[in-house]
């Protein structure tokens, strides 16, 4: 538990979109219809926003709940103050990744390596069986383009700093 005297009151500055947190009314509308509020432990998006506002860094680094979000954006629709809680939930995940590399989603390394997380090539047979062309013109069909895509992503700090994960 972080003592409030040790809290990082500038934490909101590290989160994209964090400046709007100060206008949050703490009304709770964002949680009221959130599917992931039924998760265990529950995703309580309003509480997470308050924790950012209060600068409770250590607690937030440990929080797994931002990753339970179903990305439905109901919270954004109902928020009376346009705080965009879902966007902040994503910003919170990014902040966690910057501070704890074990949080980096493995799916990003898959996209780096083959453009997709889904095994797109496995649908080729199904496509052929229903009379569609088997090969999809996705990025792996063009190795030169894939290399350019990878070079582009390597320009990004968090990817370059963990290039061993991405290059596989």
């Amino acid at each position: 538990m972080t003592a409030l005297s040790e809290a990082n009151l500038d934490l909101w500055r590290d989160l994209e979109g964090g400046d709007v947190l100060r206008i949050c009314l703490t009304c709770g509308s964002c949680v009221s219809d959130c599917p992931a509020s039924e998760a265990d432990p529950p995703l309580l998006i309003r509480t997470l926003l308050r924790m950012v506002e209060l600068g409770l860094e250590d607690n937030l680094l440990e929080e797994d709940t931002p990753w339970s979000c179903v990305t439905c954006s109901r919270c954004e629709e109902v928020c009376p103050m346009d705080v965009r809680p879902f966007e902040i939930c994503l910003a919170l995940r990014r902040w966690q990744c910057r501070n704890d590399s074990t949080r980096i989603p493995l799916s990003t390394t898959e996209i780096y390596q083959r453009g997709y997380t889904q095994p797109v090539d496995r649908v080729e047979e199904l496509r052929r069986s229903v009379g569609l062309s088997g090969k999809l013109p996705v990025i792996t069909a063009d190795p030169e383009l894939l290399a350019k895509f990878q070079a582009m992503l390597m320009e990004i700090d968090v990817i370059r700093d963990h290039d061993f994960m991405f290059k596989g």
Binding site: L90, R93, P105, I111, G115, T117, L136, I139, F149, V158
Partner: peptide
Amino acid sequence: DLEGYVCCPAFGTFPSLDEDAHLAV
């Protein structure tokens, strides 16, 4: 068909890692 398409990116991927990477994809 668009040629050279990559993952949209799904919210659990680059949007959860880095904003510039998300928007570049």
